[in-house]
Design a protein around this nucleic acid. Structure first.
Lengths: 136, 136
DNA sequence: CATATTGCGTTTTCTTGGATAGCATTTTTT
DNA sequence: AAAAAATGCTATCCAAGAAAACGCAATATG
């Protein structure tokens, strides 16, 4: 399961993407509309900003907006950023790989199946973007 | 990521499945060979027993062995038993469904994508069984 | 300067994963 | 019947992580 953090992130990103204009949106507005704890959302948006997915502006008329086109933000990127590995096992992870203590990873049945699972997931999650979520 | 519990379970089940004979295997033996904390493994095997996947025998010559053919135990079953939902969101889970607060689940882009992911996962995890892990 | 807004370190709370301890129960053997 | 060999089961603990809240600093606008 995705963590609340990532779930909230998707909600917030969807909300931003659905706005036609590119004007800054208040954290408070997103929090209210999407029922996300304000302070928690603050942290999340900040992480998204530090990852160059969002941008922000302070002071009056400030808020958050996309740093890049939503169609250039794959779901996998958001998930890795906030939740870490997408794979089910460390030994099949592409971005968070860790060697397996028991199996030699070659001829290990579990390793093979989990690689399949990973590929099936990535095929979808790398291709689908925030833009795909919005155009409902 | 799978929890340690489920990872250990797969290791243990693979070990049992790789034994040709159907003689009981000591918890201690599995723990040693697979480097799993003994007491922790005890709990795991017990859960697998209560789910009718394994069977046990006490006393001398006792131990654990399969209650059914390993080829009749899909990976998904083990995962749901020990880790809960396979889906990434509660609102797309088949066995642990919870309604979504925000979206109406119909015309929700996120819901659609996550359903796809779930299906892709289940297609593999429901079909592959413990037997597939063993024949390495 | 006053006001609006994000930035950010800190802390708190809560949950869960992971692991340990100890005794109870069942079965086999002698 | 007693001893030995296993699992059964419950309770508990610890650490880490997730989720959330607090307070003030920094920055931008007018």
């Amino acid at each position: 399961m995705l963590s609340k953090k990532t779930q909230y992130a998707f909600q917030a990103l969807m909300y931003l993407a659905e706005k036609d204009n590119d004007e800054p949106v208040l954290i408070a507005e997103i929090a209210k509309k999407k029922k996300i704890p304000l302070k928690f959302l603050e942290n999340i948006l900040l992480e998204l900003k530090n990852a160059n997915i969002l941008e922000s502006k302070k002071g009056k008329g400030g808020g958050y907006f996309f740093a890049k086109n939503p169609k250039d933000v794959p779901l996998a990127t958001v998930m890795r950023l906030l939740d870490g590995p997408i794979s089910l096992l460390p030994c099949v992870s592409l971005y968070f790989y860790e060697r397996c203590k028991n199996c030699d990873e070659k001829g290990c049945g579990l390793h093979m199946v989990m690689s399949q699972v990973r590929d099936a997931n990535l095929k979808i999650l790398e291709k689908k973007t925030i833009a795909d979520l919005a155009k409902g």
